[in-house]
């Protein structure tokens, strides 16, 4: 179920992991995961969706973004550019025919593949939430910090936010990035039933939502 794939890194090609349900079938879905904490919160949901897709006859691969999850690359070396290169490399390696980009994954997925975008989010919204968490936790520690000043600092020198060391490139990239979907079908949370798993402060799962998502994809893919 775990597969490796060659990912471009700063010093050449490195191996990264992916959760893969790969039986060599013709319908092959690459999943571009959400970014930061939302990646962890949605992991069980996405892997369960993969199981359901497997039952519908669709192969799927959920690659790690370099610097995230099991990746040995440094998070601080990543940018939206490196994540886009990585997702494009994963799509080639796994011969993906379709894409599912989830939340911030919509900022980095290979846009030439047909497929689906689940509740895409702007980079600036992701950044705003991370900056806010930092300002709030600084305030609890009795320190006064300011989001606008932190953003300016981050764009030039990088910044630590919510335990992640963001490069200047990642901060600047997020600040400007909007979802890149071009003709992919946008799926809204309301179509899945239930509440959004990426919102939950504690990671959860919901097999019914996974089943709904898998069914939508499997039906569309056949048509």
């Amino acid at each position: 179920m775990l597969a490796t794939w060659p990912c471009p890194g700063p010093y050449g090609i490195l191996e990264e992991l992916a959760v893969a349900f790969d039986r060599g079938r013709s319908a092959r879905l690459l999943i571009a995961p959400p970014l930061f904490e939302e990646m962890n919160r949605t992991r069980r949901f996405l892997v369960e969706t993969q199981r359901q897709l497997d039952a519908f006859g669709v192969d799927s691969m959920l690659p790690d973004l370099p610097g995230c999850n099991e990746s040995l690359q440094a998070f601080s070396a990543q940018s939206l550019g490196s994540w886009r290169d990585a997702m494009a490399a994963a799509a080639r390696h796994f011969r993906a025919t379709h894409i599912l980009a989830v939340r911030g994954g919509a900022l980095v997925f290979p846009t030439t593949l047909p497929g689906w975008v689940l509740e895409p989010i702007k980079g600036a919204s992701i950044l705003r939430q991370l900056l806010r968490a930092r300002v709030l936790s600084a305030r609890e520690a009795g320190l006064a910090e300011d989001s606008a000043a932190l953003l300016e600092l981050g764009r030039n020198h990088g910044l630590e936010l919510a335990g992640y060391r963001l490069s200047a490139a990642l901060v600047a990239g997020l600040d400007a990035a909007v979802p890149e979907d071009e003709g992919q079908v946008v799926i809204r949370q309301s179509a899945l039933g239930g509440s959004a798993l990426w919102l939950r402060s504690e990671p959860g799962e919901d097999p019914a939502q996974s089943a709904n998502l898998a069914r939508m994809i499997a039906q569309d893919e056949g048509g």
């Binding site: 904490e37 806010r132 968490a133 709030l136 936790s137 402060s201």
Partner: peptide, 14 residues
């Protein structure tokens, strides 16, 4: 206890 600074940030954004 689950309402830490990250959860508050998410709550406010939502």
């Amino acid at each position: 206890p689950e309402l830490d600074s990250m959860a508050v940030a998410g709550l406010l954004t939502e």
